[in-house]
Nucleic acid binder design. Structure first.
Lengths: 179, 179
DNA sequence: ACCGTAGCGGAGTCCCCACTTCGGTTAAAG
DNA sequence: CTTTAACCGAAGTGGGGACTCCGCTACGGT
């Protein structure tokens, strides 16, 4: 694979994340190509279909978040680690969930694998915070995921002031904390 | 206006809410017409454009919720009223927010008016619960709205088990409650 | 029961977007 | 420097969906 081709591939993925993350399904491949500074054909040469492009951007995102989740699962202060992980997942994952919803019913194996791995790491981080006694034990990773997804999706759809978002995250953390 | 025309208009609105609420922007007017049991032309006679149809369904939804919010704003137990209001807004408003996101940047006056009125009523309900001392005073209606929107939007996009959703709502309520 | 007309449905039209084709361009090996 | 093959961009192509036209239906007042 040639040098410029690899650079283009990366630029296309970044552009796809931005376009589809904000515009949703309305975004067109032409818009992605323009933002990436390449022609439409180049996009389709790297990714045979629009769905494949979204899928690749999605996997890239999951892998990026996985590092953070692993770090949170091995931190010395489980509660603080969980708090920062939630923050990061909401901020960085805003556009990701829009992408995921675009894939709809069919779930490509690569995406499922990356998603499962990430969820497992988040689950570990949550359990460690619960074992430390700082998070109430009657909630699971499903509730946490639901709330994270909700905030991420909403902030992706419409811009939200940072202060309000932070405050909302703080409310969620207060809801998870032991009394 | 003739009787059958009015019935058709109502059926079309209900169908639009279902189709666009679940499928999102992917839903087509043809699908709405089929579900409503009418022809495509009938849909466009009642609502000159797809956007107008979404707008009408949206206003209908806001007005329906407004009643509930007003009830919550005058209840004797402000905290319990707020809790049920949150539940109702999430359950009933799931598809509504999908519709709202479809309108995008431009905000038709009728929708803005209905939305503002609803938000004001929710704000009143929140303030009453804060005045009663059952909700912490350092959060506003913006945070509440953000969390409600998040959960509603997520449950609209992908089906969520009722138990998980209830538990997540309970976490939010715990986050809002005074310690 | 009759008739005028509002209302209806299906067959088009137009446009947008995912995807393809082909001639020019450039990175890298000899 | 030359060659060559991988890569690129612009101009198509096909399908789907928003929206319109016109002959027909049936509601409802008399």
């Amino acid at each position: 694979m040639r040098q410029d081709a690899r650079e283009n591939r990366e630029r296309i993925l970044a552009a796809a994340e931005q376009v589809f993350g904000t515009r949703g399904e309305t975004g067109s491949t032409e818009e992605v190509a323009r933002l990436a500074g390449v022609g439409i054909a180049t996009v389709f040469r790297h990714f045979p279909t629009k769905e494949a492009l979204i899928e690749a951007a999605l996997v890239r995102h999951f892998v990026g978040l996985l590092d953070r989740a692993r770090a949170a699962a091995t931190a010395t202060d489980p509660y603080a680690a969980l708090a920062t992980l939630i923050h990061e997942m909401i901020e960085r994952g805003a556009s990701k969930l829009t992408l995921a919803s675009m894939l709809g019913d069919d779930a490509p194996p690569a995406v499922v694998a990356a998603s499962t791995e990430l969820k497992s790491a988040v689950n570990t981080a949550l359990h460690r915070a619960q074992a430390a006694g700082s998070v109430r034990p009657d909630v699971g990773v499903e509730e946490l995921y639901l709330l994270i997804r909700g905030l991420a999706q909403t902030t992706a759809a419409t811009p939200v002031p940072a202060a309000v978002l932070d405050s909302a995250v703080e409310v969620i953390l207060a809801g998870f904390a032991t009394r």
